[in-house]
Amino acid sequence: MKVDDRFEHYINEARQAFSGWDFSYITGSGRMQLQLLPWSLGSILIPYIRCAKSLLDMGTGGGEFLSTLQPFPKITYATEGYPPNVPVARRKLEPLGVQVVYVEDDEKLPLPDRLFDVVMNQHESYAPSEIRRILADQGVFITQQVGGTDCYQINDLFGVPLNAEFAHWNLDYAASELRNHGFNVTFAREDYPVQRFYDVGALIYYLTAIPWQVPDFTVDRYRDELNHIHEWIQLQGYFEVRQHRFIMIASL
């Protein structure tokens, strides 16, 4: 099948810098769209944050989400484990009074015992034992997670299996794990919202930004598969996959 000029155009268009955790290059233009979840993490968090004296945001990325939840408690920290994101987060958050801490090991957070009234976590790994250690008495842990079957249709089309290490990661497993560490899970929901790509360049940009979906991804390696998706989009208008998300509120 002949690759048309639009395919090459989208490949070239995808060569854009990615910083922090900001997908606005493809979401702001509508090139990638996400179905709404049946909950809002921000709306859930705000009442807890307003009543807290101390707050931790785990895996802050570039601080994009946390910065929308101002005003913060007097003691507010953010952690980030991806080195290129750390200076991005510091530039955004430190002027707002947030201390940004680089973290290498979920099992050894460089944070004091029982410091935080609220620990928030959006799509970041965690160790329940460490969450329990750093939470203050009657503290609350609020996390939205990416489940183990996230966007599996991409992997199917690329002939790449999902990461077996996370295949078990779903609401039932995560909630049970927290309960086994002494938490009371007071709210839990799971959903599989639609995610659509309206051109193959948006998909390339996305896969380049999240290398764990297809770990060896390059355009040259998967050119035939990308061209197949491109032709599919020309016929159908979009390439659709299913996300996997779940949310929990847990307290001590």
Rank of each mutant, 00 (worst) to 15 (best):
Y82T: 09
S54P: 07
F166Y: 13
M1I: 12
V219P: 00
D117Y: 01
S125C: 02
A174P: 00
N12K: 11
R179M: 15
F141G: 01
F187C: 07
Q153H: 05
L178F: 02
I134K: 09
L93C: 08
Y102E: 13
K108V: 08
N170H: 08
T79G: 02
H244G: 02
K108P: 00
T208H: 05
S29T: 02
F187W: 10
L96R: 14
V185I: 13
V200I: 09
Q213R: 14
L111W: 01
I46G: 01
S251Q: 15
P215D: 05
F239W: 13
Q99C: 13
Q16V: 14
A175Q: 13
D5G: 07
R221S: 06
A250Q: 12
P83L: 14
R31G: 02
Q153G: 00
Y238R: 14
L109Q: 07
S29P: 00
N85A: 15
V194W: 05
Q145T: 08
V98L: 08
E64V: 15
L41Q: 02
V101G: 03
Y102G: 04
R6M: 09
L109E: 02
D220R: 14
K92C: 05
A17M: 03
G63T: 09
D156W: 12
I210Q: 15
V103S: 06
G42P: 03
Q70D: 04
V200Q: 04
L115Q: 11
G28A: 06
W169L: 14
I154M: 09
Y82K: 10
N155D: 04
D57P: 03
L45Y: 01
R196D: 11
D117M: 02
R196A: 06
P128Q: 06
